[in-house]
Simulated assay, not measured.
Amino acid sequence: MITMTEKLREQFDAGLLSGQELRDDFTIAQPVHRYTETDHAMWRTLYERQATMLKGRVCNEFLEGLETLGMDKHRVPDFEALNERLMRATGWQVVAVPGLVPDQVFFEHLANRRFPASWWMRKPEQLDYLQEPDCFHDVFGHVPLLINPVFADYMEAYGKGGLKAHGLGALDMLARLYWYTVEFGLMRTPEGLRIYGAGILSSQGESIYSLDAASPNRIGFDVRRIMRTRYRIDTFQKTYFVIDSFEQLFDATGPDFTPLYDALRDQPTLGAGDIAAGDRVIHTGTREGWGDSEDI
């Protein structure tokens, strides 16, 4: 497993930190002077593609957040400009980081209403896929929903819960909750299923696959079930969990998770594509095209 020291070394070697001060909280000043025309063109391409194809696929709360933020469509956004609107709406702000940060640091930021966003843009050859989140994923995918008061409160609560889980040895269970909600969550609406997870929102392919494909399972949201379920980082998801509202999400994750962690430690984990007894199954996947690599 790669260590944080090795990850920082990679970031230095890639020029993501070169000539910049890394603060104690792993943030940096967004180096807006380092964005090239290629970076801005990549942002513009991704924004136009996703904004067009997400119509009728994304939840209304995301669209409302995007409109309220007035996010730049043509150039990589200046975080300070975004923060003026974001702070007024929900007290959140975006802070620039060179890439992945330690778990404890990540939770500290969320618990204090700061969203750590990678400042750098993917390369043209990474248009459709990259393993590590870049600025487009973090800013376009995550930030608009921080305008929504309930979702904003959920993210703060998640950060506080993460600090506690870190001391209880339960990060694996809490990470699954983040993965299946914040990154790859779906919502049931009167108009049909809609996307709210940033990992889907920032991906053209998964924006289509998550709603239209027959291959994956779609299962009603359940905290216990999610915390037992492994996930995929190398392919589209085998299972998507569906909430009815952000209020449901916030209410279900409000109680102290300590007794839940204790109870779940004695239960077996489930594969990313498993269907379990008691599941509220919305759609049973055909499993077509599923890879045979290991779940996380």
Rank of each mutant, 00 (worst) to 15 (best):
M227D: 03
L171A: 09
D172V: 14
Y261Q: 04
I195N: 01
S210V: 06
D251R: 15
D234G: 01
K238M: 07
L211H: 05
A165P: 14
T181Y: 01
E183M: 05
A213C: 10
Y240V: 05
R280E: 14
H166G: 15
A214F: 10
K238H: 09
N217D: 03
E288S: 11
E288G: 04
D251K: 13
E183T: 09
Q267T: 14
A277R: 14
L270V: 06
A272H: 10
G273M: 02
P190L: 04
T235V: 03
A263S: 15
Y261C: 10
D279R: 07
R225S: 08
D292I: 14
R218H: 10
T181F: 00
L249P: 10
R280T: 15
I200V: 11
L171N: 14
I208H: 13
Q237C: 00
R287T: 14
Q267M: 15
G192W: 01
R280Y: 07
P190M: 00
Y231R: 07
G185C: 00
F236A: 10
F250N: 11
T189P: 08
G278E: 05
R228C: 06
A214I: 13
L168C: 03
K238G: 03
V223L: 12
G220M: 01
R232E: 05
L270C: 02
A198N: 09
G169D: 07
G285D: 12
R265I: 09
T235A: 09
I219Q: 00
D274L: 00
I226E: 07
L186W: 11
A214L: 12
L201P: 10
R176E: 05
R280A: 15
D212Q: 15
G192L: 03
F184G: 11
L174W: 12
Y180A: 10
T286H: 12
R287M: 10
Y231M: 02
Y196C: 04
Y178G: 05
I275G: 00
R230D: 09
E206A: 09
L177S: 14
D279Q: 02
H283Y: 06
G273N: 01
E206D: 12
T258D: 12
I243M: 06
R265Q: 14
D266I: 13
G285N: 13
G199N: 04
G271D: 06
L193R: 05
E288F: 07
E294N: 15
V182R: 09
I233N: 01
D262G: 07
F221S: 01
V182T: 13
G220Y: 02
E288Y: 04
D244S: 13
G271I: 03
